[in-house]
C-alpha cells in the first residue's frame, strides 16, 4: 500500500555515552510536502535527531545510533552517507555560506564539492531557479560574483537554503534556521518555507513555539530524548494530550 509518508523513524535511539540515550526510541512518520516542527526545551535531543536524518552525527566519534530511518523506502542508516546527504538537504542555525566562494558558486557548491561538472547554461539555470525560489534573485542578480559573506544575515540564510535546494533533495532539514536572525528576516524565511513546501518536505527544529504554530502542519514535542507528542499542529496547540506538552506550551519550562 502506498502511503504519502516520505520519512519514517522506527525506534530511533541515539547516545553520546553508552547506556544514556540522548534520543530514546523515537517512532514517527512524516508526510510528504508538509512542514513538521520539532520542539522541546534545549537538550531534549531535537537537534540530535534532526542531524541523524542527514547522518551528520557520524562526523563525531562515539555517537551510537540504533533503529531505522527510512527515507523514500530506503533505510538511510544502511546507505552510503554521501548519498544520504544529497537526498536530505540541511540548513544550519547560523548562516554559513562559504566565505571563499561567490554567491553563484555558493549555490552550486553541492555540485562543485561532489565533483560534478555541468555545462555553463545548466549552471546558470540552476542558480537562477534556486535563487528565485528563495526570493533572492532580484536582490543579487547584479552581484552574483560577489562573495556570499557580503549579504545580510537573512540573505545569507536564504542563500544557504538555495544551496541546499540546488541538489534537489527529497527533504529539507532545518536546525533552528532563524534563531540568529532579526524578526523581519525571520518572517521572510517563514513565508519562503510555506512556498517551498508545495514541492518539498521540511522538518524544522525550533524552540520558538509561535514559529511552529505559524508555519508547521505537524508538530513534535520532545522532552528528555523522548517523543512525547506528535500531532497536527493546530490540535497540539489547542488541545495537547500530554501534560508535559501543555506545560511546555504554557512556558513552564525550557
Amino acid at each position: 500500500m502506498k502511503d504519502n509518508n516520505i520519512l519514517k523513524l522506527k525506534d530511533v535511539s541515539i547516545s553520546y555515552v553508552p547506556g544514556k540515550n540522548a534520543v530514546n526510541k523515537v517512532c514517527a512518520e512524516i508526510k510528504e510536502n508538509s512542514i513538521t516542527a520539532i520542539m522541546g526545551p534545549s537538550g531534549c535531543g531535537k537537534s540530535t535527531l534532526l542531524r541523524a536524518i542527514n547522518r551528520m552525527h557520524e562526523l563525531y566519534p562515539d555517537i551510537n545510533i540504533s533503529g531505522e530511518i527510512i527515507l523514500r523506502d530506503q533505510n538511510i542508516l544502511k546507505m552510503n552517507p554521501i548519498k544520504v546527504r544529497r537526498m536530505a538537504g540541511m540548513v544550519f542555525q547560523r548562516p554559513n555560506p562559504f566565505p571563499t566562494m561567490s554567491i553563484y558558486n555558493n549555490v552550486l557548491a553541492g555540485y562543485k564539492l561532489n565533483g560534478i561538472k555541468l555545462p555553463k547554461a545548466e549552471k546558470d539555470q540552476i542558480v537562477e531557479e534556486c535563487l528565485r525560489s528563495v526570493g533572492l534573485w532580484d536582490e543579487v542578480k547584479e552581484s552574483l560574483n560577489k562573495k556570499g559573506t557580503f549579504l545580510s544575515g537573512g540573505q545569507q540564510q536564504r542563500l544557504c537554503i538555495a544551496r541546499a535546494l540546488a541538489l534537489k533533495p527529497d527533504i529539507l532539514l532545518m536546525d533552528e534556521p532563524t534563531s540568529a536572525l532579526d524578526p523581519i528576516a525571520t518572517n521572510r524565511i517563514e513565508e519562503l518555507l510555506l512556498e517551498i513546501k508545495k514541492h518539498l518536505t521540511i522538518v524544522i527544529v525550533t524552540h520558538n513555539m509561535s514559529q511552529a504554530a505559524r508555519i508547521s502542519d505537524y508538530s513534535m514535542f520532545m522532552y528528555l530524548g523522548e517523543l512525547v507528542e506528535y500531532d497536527k499542529t493546530e490540535l497540539m496547540f489547542t488541545n495537547p494530550s500530554d501534560k508535559r506538552t501543555e506545560q511546555y506550551l504554557n512556558g513552564q519550562f525550557g
Binding site: M56, I82, G89, F92, R94, M101, A109, R163, L167
Partner: peptide
C-alpha cells in the same frame, strides 16, 4: 569553523573534498 565544514558535509562532500574545497581555501 565547524559550521563551514558541516555545511560542506551536508551537501555530500567526502572529508578529502571538505579539506580541499573548504579547509584549504579558508
Amino acid at each position: 569553523s565547524n559550521e563551514l565544514k558541516e555545511a560542506a558535509y551536508s551537501l555530500g562532500a567526502t572529508r578529502f573534498e571538505v579539506i580541499k574545497s573548504v579547509i584549504f581555501s579558508s
